[in-house]
């Protein structure tokens, strides 16, 4: 559904209505960078799961750059301190990757729980993030992990956090950019949990990291109609077991702004259940 060009009504574009476009299929990241420099109007395609939805909502690509030949973006690597996930990994392949399973099994578990079996074979983690669609779950999961998104742009390499990208922070690149890698710091990570039992009302991801003064807790909160929100708290203890679970959960949930309230749950309700879910995650992690 989209607004008619003169504002005189609503139209629902169908797949049959999509005109042909110029198609480019680079075979390397370097090639893809060059393509994007040449064709700033290009729309990037990977699994096409969200792209097709966008087309049905009115997107009409004149140039499409398919990344499917970029096998170099299907890797998962871990050097002991940082996990590097290629943006082209599908949910299925990425979550089942042995390197991920060994380096960060909690992320593998969370990632393996999202979407449906059928979607998981096709949709990519990069597409999930780039869509900026509120009900998608990777922004919550990777947001809580303070994942860095690495882009190639016409102006060179750029980098921002998932949270910055979701919030459209100035640090996030604008326009047609090529997300190629997601980078998660594993060195300081103590614990990670993801709870989607209340989905689609609310999902909660919690990362516990070692900080200079103790532990730093970062939670991502997702919902159907509002973008994911990050909340944080620092606790001056060294172990998860030593955290005041209820207190930390209360502190973080209290930071949720009023705008997390929507049709599916008021802000008051969201704060309350997020507090419950965070407390349970902390108890489980302890």
């Amino acid at each position: 559904m989209r607004l008619q060009s003169r504002g005189a009504g609503l139209l629902t574009p169908t797949q049959a209505a999509l005109p042909p476009f110029d198609l480019l299929r680079p075979t390397s990241l370097a090639d893809a960078r060059a393509v994007l420099a040449d064709r700033p109007e290009a729309v990037i395609a990977a699994g096409c799961t969200d792209l097709v939805a966008a087309i049905r909502e009115g997107l009409v690509p004149s140039t499409l750059v398919s990344l499917r030949n970029l096998d170099e973006l299907r890797t998962v690597e871990h050097d002991g301190t940082a996990l590097r996930i290629g943006a082209l990994n599908t949910h299925h392949d990425g979550s089942a990757h042995p390197v991920l399973g060994a380096a960060l099994p909690e992320l593998a578990d969370a990632w393996s729980a999202i979407a449906t079996v059928r979607i998981r074979f096709r949709a990519t983690v990069g597409g999930n993030l780039m869509a900026r669609r509120y009900r998608y779950e990777m922004p919550v999961i990777l947001g809580a992990l303070e994942t860095a998104m690495e882009f190639s742009t016409a102006a060179g390499e750029r980098r921002c956090t998932v949270d910055e990208f979701v919030r459209r922070d100035p640090a996030a690149p604008e326009g047609r950019t090529l997300l190629h890698t997601l980078s998660v710091d594993t060195a300081s990570l103590v614990a990670f949990r993801y709870d989607r039992s209340m989905r689609p009302v609310t999902t909660v991801a919690l990362a516990v990291r070692r900080s200079r003064d103790g532990l730093r807790l970062t939670a991502g909160v997702g919902s159907e109609y509002r973008r994911a929100v990050l909340v944080r708290t620092d606790v001056p203890v060294a172990e998860v077991t030593a955290i005041d679970h209820a207190g930390a959960a209360h502190e973080m949930a209290g930071q949720l702004p009023d705008r997390v309230g929507d049709y599916a749950g008021s802000a008051r309700y969201r704060r309350r259940i997020v507090e419950v879910l965070l407390r349970r995650q902390l108890e489980a992690a302890a």
Binding site: Q15, T49, V52, A53, R56, T116, V117, R118, I119
Partner: peptide
């Protein structure tokens, strides 16, 4: 026509995918 309902599911290299979204 946007990959959600699965009516159009086919196997691509043995994996079920929505043929409307490919």
């Amino acid at each position: 026509e946007r990959g959600v309902c699965g009516v159009c599911t086919v196997l691509l290299d043995g994996k079920p995918v929505a043929s409307c979204s490919l």
